[in-house]
Amino acid sequence: MRHIISILVENEAGALSRISNMFSARGYNIESLTVAPTEDASMSRMTVVTVGSEDVIEQITKQLNKLVEVVKVVDLSEAEYIERELMLIKVRAGARERDDMKRMADIFRGRIIDVSDNTYTIELTGDGRKLDAFIQALDQGAIIETVRTGASGIGRGNRVLRV
């Protein structure tokens, strides 16, 4: 099963590699990992998307909690949560494709953020499936380059993760 785990971690050198090392050393999956500072400069927040049985996920959260720099861990997918990912995608957009491409971006609520003679760069946010769907919907030959941030997640409503 796919799980999305949020981690509050001390903003210290090496904390990121400690966490990613733990995943690889113990043979756990990482589908994506994002990390950035929070409103509290002493802490970063990480979102890890992983796949594993209930036992494996239980071990992952325990092993994360065991790391000295990890302040808090929560498996977001245990309850209601929201997940978003940002994608920047550069597509071929010559005179003939331009209108079609614009329409496509609009349908997916994407924004064109850079234009050249023969390309568009489109910004798109959503959960992973929406981004996948956009890529599928395009003529594959039109895609020049994609970059995705990996998922970030947050609990719904009163569900919060903080110290």
Binding site: A13, G14, S17, N21, V68, E69
Partner: peptide
Amino acid sequence: RPCVKHNFL
């Protein structure tokens, strides 16, 4: 790193 409880520089 993989064989200590923790380490510091």
